[in-house]
Design a protein around this nucleic acid. Structure first.
Lengths: 127, 127
DNA sequence: CGCGTCACGCACCGATCGGTGCCTAACGGA
DNA sequence: TCCGTTAGGCACCGATCGGTGCGTGACGCG
């Protein structure tokens, strides 16, 4: 599992992007319009949102429905496949809630122990 | 959950990298040396492996044990926090096994429907 | 003495990620 | 007529990701 060309790597490619899982999660309660998504999710640019939605559509996780109306209206909804991904995502979210403080504590510990650390491996910290 | 500055975003930063989850998973059965990891995992460069391990160490998921021996010997092991992440990772892996074919089918469908697609949103395909 | 092993650092590089800013198209309202 | 709204395309940009290649230090072996 997860070795070399294993299919399981595919799952991580689906979550490798910063926003994929967040967008999927934001669609869990039904169809949403891009504007709504941009509102619900904080700090995603409109370009990246559409790119993300295209990618999710390409992978069969969401469906795009465009209505030819006065102000253009578009809705994105999860497919069955997309909905099946909600459970794993929630598992992760639960883990994060339980252990976020431990991760933060570990990061702080690192900063203490190594005096003047040359290159803190990465921010990894919500701005 | 997953909104704006929510802590749950942290979980995805931990998996945002291509190799983080794979390396954690490769350590599930006990300590491993870098060489072993490079062997188990396919196609990871030595630079990226050490970077990944440093990052995991920084986040408190793995521990580094160096033995001052003749040919330098180093072992990396999961911490308790790291082990607690195995369950969510496995959940994902299970999802991938179940649905990988659906994702691939969706991708193929995309290629059929849109004749000469201008920009296939992304490879997202194991090479 | 030269070679191999092992962990790892560093310089360099191309590809991708994500962000900003500006553009269109189509309509309703003032 | 001009503005606002909505979706989204396009150009451009800096930061990061991941890869290659080379060097080092300490040892063991022939």
């Amino acid at each position: 599992m997860f070795l070399a060309d294993c299919q399981a790597r595919l799952a991580f490619d689906l979550l490798a992007n910063t926003w994929n899982a967040v967008v999927v999660w934001s669609l869990r309660h039904g169809p949403r319009r891009p504007g709504e998504l941009r509102g619900q999710i904080g700090g995603i640019s409109h370009k990246v949102l559409t790119e993300t939605l295209r990618r999710l559509e390409f992978n069969g996780l969401v469906e795009r429905h465009a209505y030819a109306e006065a102000p253009p209206r578009v809705e994105y909804a999860l497919t069955g496949l997309g909905r099946s991904l909600l459970a794993p995502i929630e598992t992760f979210g639960a883990w994060a809630f339980e252990h976020a403080d431990e991760v933060l504590a570990a990061q702080d510990r690192w900063e203490e122990e190594t005096i003047a650390s040359p290159t803190p491996p990465r921010a990894e910290r919500p701005s």
